[in-house]
């Protein structure tokens, strides 16, 4: 039986990490909600974010956490042509054509990373990534707390955007009945494009945070995608606050799983939860609480 300090540290670290996981899943969630698209390149968008943070630091010397807005805009802008040239022309051709296209984009991106940045694993090396923070018996890396704070802030901002602004109104209306929204004057294509870009921008920030907390490489996208899918399935589709709760739940359960079964089982817990939720609560734990 590990001592209470280790247990509580692990759980706190899991919850904090879960906040970051929620942010990494947010883009996937809103794109799924509005466009009915499982963006299979979402994990690679996160990797783009991680590389963007890394090179921002290398070229400017400015801390990537300060440069987060730049990274967000950069990744968001990259997503615009993907939407206009690859996804928009497939509108009306069923969900699978768009999903397969994003799968192909994922393959291409992954190979592009290898060609451009080599297959090495890297990390965004900052002091706060390794410095431990101690509060009583609880110890965890400082980056977890910073990442959690940034993630929760951003998720709440997106929640505000979706639930309280005119754009959010258009977004929610387009998600449930695109035809009715269009008849009322909503330019649904534009809403979808902005949603896709917003999702990518969130992925950019989430990717930088992941890159600061952990090592990453050209093929990290697959694992990122699967964790994000687990969060979305746990939290419910297209539900911003649900994504936050789903992320925290996944982070905590992964940590507990890692502690009890061994560190190698962390990700396995996530995948097992994912399939179990699909089997028994396909609408997520928060089926009712839609934003």
């Amino acid at each position: 039986m590990p001592d209470i300090g280790i247990i509580s540290s692990t759980i706190v670290a899991g919850v904090l990490l879960g906040g970051i996981l929620a942010l990494t899943a947010l883009g996937l969630s809103i794109v799924l909600g509005v466009m009915r698209l499982v963006n299979l390149a979402h994990g690679d968008f996160l990797v783009v974010g991680a590389y963007a943070g890394l090179f921002f630091l290398q070229f400017t010397g400015i801390d990537p956490l300060i440069g987060l807005p730049v990274v967000a805009v950069f990744v968001g802008m990259l997503a615009l042509p993907v939407y206009s040239f690859l996804l928009a022309p497939l509108a009306g051709r069923g969900a699978e054509a768009q999903m397969m296209t994003m799968f192909a984009v994922s393959i291409i991106l992954e190979n592009a990373f290898v060609l451009a940045f080599s297959a090495d694993t890297r990390s965004i090396a900052r002091d706060y990534a390794t410095v431990p923070l101690t509060l009583g018996p609880i110890t965890f890396p400082l980056i977890y707390l910073i990442g959690f704070a940034i993630s929760v802030t951003l998720i709440l901002a997106v929640h505000w955007l979706v639930s309280a602004t005119a754009f959010g109104r258009d977004l929610r209306a387009s998600a449930v009945d695109a035809q009715a929204a269009a008849t009322l004057g909503v330019d649904v294509k534009r809403v979808q494009m902005l949603t896709f870009a917003l999702g990518a921008a969130c992925a950019g920030v989430g990717g930088t945070l992941m890159g600061a907390a952990f090592q990453f490489g050209p093929s990290s996208g697959g694992a990122y995608l699967l964790n994000s899918l687990a969060v979305v399935v746990l939290g419910g589709l297209g539900n911003v606050i649900g994504t936050l709760i789903g992320g925290i739940a996944l982070g905590a359960l992964q940590s507990i799983g890692g502690l009890t079964l061994g560190d190698g089982y962390r990700d396995l817990v996530g995948m097992a939860l994912f399939l179990l939720v699909l089997a028994f609560r396909p609408d997520g734990f928060l089926a009712k609480g839609r934003t």
Binding site: L86, P89, L90, A97, M100, T101, F103, A104, V105, S106, I107, I108, N111, A112, L115
Partner: peptide
């Protein structure tokens, strides 16, 4: 990567 490009073109 080339397989990916071929996929995109064929799907479209």
């Amino acid at each position: 990567a080339i397989a990916g490009v071929i996929l995109i073109v064929l799907i479209r």
